[in-house]
Write a protein that binds this DNA or RNA. Structure first.
Lengths: 142, 142
DNA sequence: CTCTCAATTGAGACTAATTCTCAACTAGAG
DNA sequence: CTCTAGTTGAGAATTAGTCTCAATTGAGAG
């Protein structure tokens, strides 16, 4: 999983004449060890544990590259900060977000995707990516 | 349309023991004269034309009230600032967003809504509101 | 109409996430 | 090993949005 991502990342960087630095390697590894959704701030703090000299600026810059290379996906659950999750090698999914406890539930729904594509076609629109978020109360917060 | 919203707003304010001030009246009217989606910044600038003493703080505070009373709906198209659109008396709709020219296309799709509800039910989740955004290239930017 | 007082306001300070600047540093081609 | 373009850390800058507080005002009571 991580190996694959490292390959994707180094190919991506090479194609853009960018360098694979130790900081970028560390940040990628730490992002892969993080479970679920994590913020830039959390990634910074985790990265600093592996290499205390890594700065905020580098984390943000590297996140932008990981996003662009589609290794990570950016999500905005509406709490004022963006979070990230692994995308490479995972199926696309959307989210249910509990507005009371903050729980995030992931789901896949092919029929919805098909209807989205049909809707886009109707407007002669080419979808590049999409975002479907259902906000409400989870099971426990009912 | 505006008359209706003014009624909704004054009822809403009364119920919460809040006052219908001239600033709130002005901001509501200006928001209704604005077409489509507008930012808080744009609303401030338009409101200042009607009453130059209206401040940023009042616009943000009033937007929160208009959102809470469901006269306006808040949208985030991912460019770092929230935008608002009229909600009262309009059908729910979702958006196609062109990532090249920024054009916004609205659409209604009942079948998608039904599938969303079914998906939520599967997780015993109560949807309060949702957001579906399809990003890509419009007809002209294809 | 006037009084009263809680709600409201404007101005600008403040917050927080993210981006930028720039001099010092480094990956990696040759 | 040497170059050099790309990279980095530190902290300043930016920017949307929120907060503070003294002065003001809407609107019910009299």
């Amino acid at each position: 999983m991580l190996k694959e991502a490292e390959k994707t990342f180094s190919d991506f960087l090479e194609k853009k004449d960018l360098k694979l630095t130790s900081q970028r390697r560390t940040i990628l590894r730490v992002a892969f060890e993080a479970e679920g959704h994590f913020s830039a701030e959390a990634l910074l703090s985790l990265s600093k544990k592996a290499d205390s000299t890594i700065s905020k600026a580098t984390v943000y810059r590297t996140l932008a590259l990981l996003k662009e290379s589609q290794i990570l996906e950016e999500q905005d659950f509406g709490d004022g900060k963006k979070v990230y999750e692994r995308a490479q090698g995972r199926k696309h999914h959307d989210h249910l977000i509990c507005i009371r406890c903050g729980k995030i539930i992931e789901f896949e729904n092919e029929p919805i995707e098909r209807l989205q594509n049909a809707e886009a076609q109707k407007h002669r629109f080419k979808i590049v990516y999409h975002s479907l978020k259902l906000f409400g109360f989870c099971n426990s917060c009912g």
